[in-house]
Simulated scan of single mutants.
Amino acid sequence: MPSGRTRLLDAATELLAAQPSHEPSTRELYEAAGVAAPTLYHHFGTKEGLLDAVVERAFADYLQRKHGMLRTGDLVTDFCAGWDLHVEFGVANPTLYALMYSPGRVSAAAATADTHLRAALERMRDAGLLRVDVDTAAAMTTGMAIGCVTQLNRQHRPVDNPAALATRAALIEQLTGQSSASTSPDQAARALLRELPEVAARFTSAESALLTQWLRAIAEEERAAAPPKGSRP
Score class of each variant (00 low, 15 high):
Ala189Ser: 10
Leu196Glu: 12
Val106Trp: 12
Gln155Met: 13
Tyr41Asn: 06
His67Arg: 10
Leu171Pro: 03
Val149Pro: 07
Ala81Arg: 12
Ala12Val: 10
Glu222Asp: 15
Thr77Pro: 00
Arg202Tyr: 10
Ser3Glu: 05
Asp78Thr: 01
Val87Arg: 00
Gly45Asn: 08
Glu48Asp: 14
Asn93Ala: 04
Arg190Trp: 00
Asp126Val: 09
Arg232Ala: 14
Leu165Ile: 11
Thr13Asn: 02
Glu14Gly: 04
Pro24Phe: 08
Asp186Arg: 01
Val55Tyr: 04
Ser21Pro: 00
Ala17Ser: 15
Cys148Val: 05
Leu29Arg: 00
Gly90Thr: 07
Leu171Asn: 11
Thr212Asp: 14
Asn161Ser: 14
Glu28Pro: 02
Pro185Met: 00
Thr46Glu: 08
Leu196Ser: 09
Asp114Asn: 08
Ala120Phe: 02
Lys47Phe: 09
Ala37Gln: 15
Trp83His: 12
Leu193Ile: 05
Gly90Trp: 04
Ala206Tyr: 06
Phe59Asn: 04
Ile218Lys: 03
Leu16Arg: 02
Ala191Trp: 01
Val132Tyr: 11
Ser184Glu: 14
Asp133Thr: 07
Val159Cys: 13
Ser25Ala: 06
His22Tyr: 11
Leu117His: 03
Ala109Trp: 03
Ala170Trp: 08
Arg216Asn: 14
Leu63Tyr: 01
Ala209Phe: 04
Leu165Phe: 05
Arg71Pro: 01
Asp78Gly: 00
Arg123Leu: 15
Arg157Pro: 07
Ala119Trp: 05
Ser180Gly: 09
Val159Gln: 09
Leu99Ser: 01
Arg27Gly: 10
Arg194Pro: 04
Ala191Cys: 06
Leu193Glu: 10
Val149Ser: 02
Ala200Thr: 14
Ala111Gly: 10
Val76Lys: 05
Gly147Cys: 04
Ala18Glu: 14
Glu198Arg: 15
Gln64Trp: 02
Leu193Ser: 05
Leu192Gln: 12
Glu207Phe: 04
Trp214Met: 10
Leu99Asn: 06
Leu75Gln: 03
Val87Ser: 02
Ala219Gly: 05
Leu121Glu: 07
Pro197Val: 04
Arg223Cys: 06
Arg123Phe: 09
Arg65Asp: 11
Arg125Met: 06
Pro185His: 00
Thr115Phe: 11
Arg194Asp: 15
His42Leu: 15
Phe89Asp: 03
Ala36Lys: 11
Lys66Thr: 13
Gly4Leu: 04
Thr13Cys: 02
Ser25Gln: 06
Arg125Leu: 12
Asp114Trp: 09
Ala206Asp: 15
Ile172Phe: 01
Met124Ala: 07
Gln187Leu: 12
Glu122Val: 13
Ile218Asn: 09
Arg154His: 12
Thr39His: 00
Leu99Gln: 08
Pro197Asn: 04
Asp74Ser: 05
Pro162Val: 01
Gly177Tyr: 13
Thr167Asp: 13
Lys47Tyr: 09
Ser180Asp: 15
Asn153Lys: 10
Gly177Ser: 08
Pro158Trp: 00
Leu99Thr: 01
Cys80Pro: 02
His86Gln: 12
Arg202Glu: 10
Ala60Tyr: 04
Glu173Lys: 12
Gly4Gln: 08
His116Pro: 00
Ala137Glu: 11
Ala33Glu: 10
Thr95His: 06
Asp61Lys: 07
Ala33Val: 09
Asp135Val: 12
Gly104Trp: 13
Gly128Arg: 04
His86Arg: 10
His156Glu: 08
Leu215Asp: 10
